[in-house]
Design a protein around this nucleic acid. Sequence first.
RNA 1: GCGUCGGUGGUAGAGCGGUCAAUUACAACAGACUGUAAAUCUGUCGCCUUCGGGCUACGAAGGUUCAAAUCCUUCCCGACGCA
Length: 404
Amino acid sequence: MLKFSIHKKLEGTLARAGEIETKNGIIKTPAFVVVGTKATVKSMTAEQIRSLSAQVVLANTYHLYLQPGSDIVAQAGGFGKFMDWHGPTMTDSGGFQAFSLGAAFGNSVSKVATGDEVSNISATSGQLAKVTDEGVMFKSHLDGSKHLFTPESSMEAQWKLGADMIFAFDECTSPTAPYEYQKKSLARTYDWAKRSLARHNELDTDKKQSLFAVIQGGRFQDLREEAARTLGALAAGPEHSEGFDGFGIGGSFTKDDIGTAVGWVNALLPEDKPRHLLGIGEPLDLFNAVEAGCDLFDCIAPTRMARHGSLHTADGRLNIKNARFTTDFTPIEEGCQCYTCQHHTRAYLAHLFRGDEMTASTLASIHNLHFILRLVEKIRESILDDTFHQYKKDFLARYIKKEQ
RNA sequence: GCGUCGGUGGUAGAGCGGUCAAUUACAACAGACUGUAAAUCUGUCGCCUUCGGGCUACGAAGGUUCAAAUCCUUCCCGACGCA
């Protein structure tokens, strides 16, 4: 069971800086959670993750359940030990795969909406996930075999995976889902949260794991607020220790309303519980979400972008594969303290990418994770010393739109 | 010297009379990516364009045909075989 303490609140906003204490260490919040879906941060060793001063690693239940199997991970002593990560850990419930393998499958719909999506829940061709009130029927993307995930089975799998913080099984809806569907789905996610909590309490009698409920509701204020109120009421408290230890905020927003919509939720959630914004990790979004009261963020963006050659700099992202970098013998970013920038040039990275060398992914991931981890660290410091607004303004003035 | 088979866009390699500016792959040039179906995916890729189309192209030069990368002749180049 975790302890969460708030050290400083930023006046006039919902932002706060604090600490989460887990049995495997302390997380200074706001914090960026590194994603290691299959008990590995793609292309990186645990030692490299440590060297970045990452605080927490999140793995995915769906993936580890399928391969190598939850029992094997349990035998290994949990996914953290399995991968040689001894700090705090989290697992996602598999709920996101209801979206990524379901409504999103083959539909070029992404988690962050543009706002122009057409409401649509009928495009079901080739989907690998089907949602019912009981749970989600997955067709494994690995071998096509069928697997039913329920709130109960997700809790059981996450129990075996052994993370410090786990998530209730939820339905992550598509940005294209209309209001009526979001409303119906929200009721289901609420029901699943209660089922998750019940099963979690049966399994975790020693309070080893902390369970986060997930707030859904799409882009609709009334649904988001309803979810925050109803699930917030189930938070653990002095007289009710078997409640939720934190909250995840999931589902879809547009980039523009990410701050405001998250704020609707956090204004209503119990203040003394950590809030994890699921799957968000671009600089602008991080600033807005912190300001709207979020404490934790996980995102695949830094590592996936890195593997695809898109690298963060203070002046925006650059595509290292562009022709202009083939003879650029400066670091990705002048002054960057990451291993990659301390030892290698843009030209070298460009060469590794063009040659499809595996080291390209590693070096690029080190850089992007360093960039995002340091960014969130600096955001935290700026809350503590009351310079958040200035820092946000200065950072974004350079980062947004400016091309190198 | 004789014979056989070949010479196609940056590369490899399809096409073998019209539907061919020419399949495909790679390379190249750009773009996308937010709880990882992702070391992935998308677009462009002869020149010009008012995006309708126009022009020049399949070793070179001629020729046959309404029509040629595709057929014929000669030449040049390459591989192999025989001398």
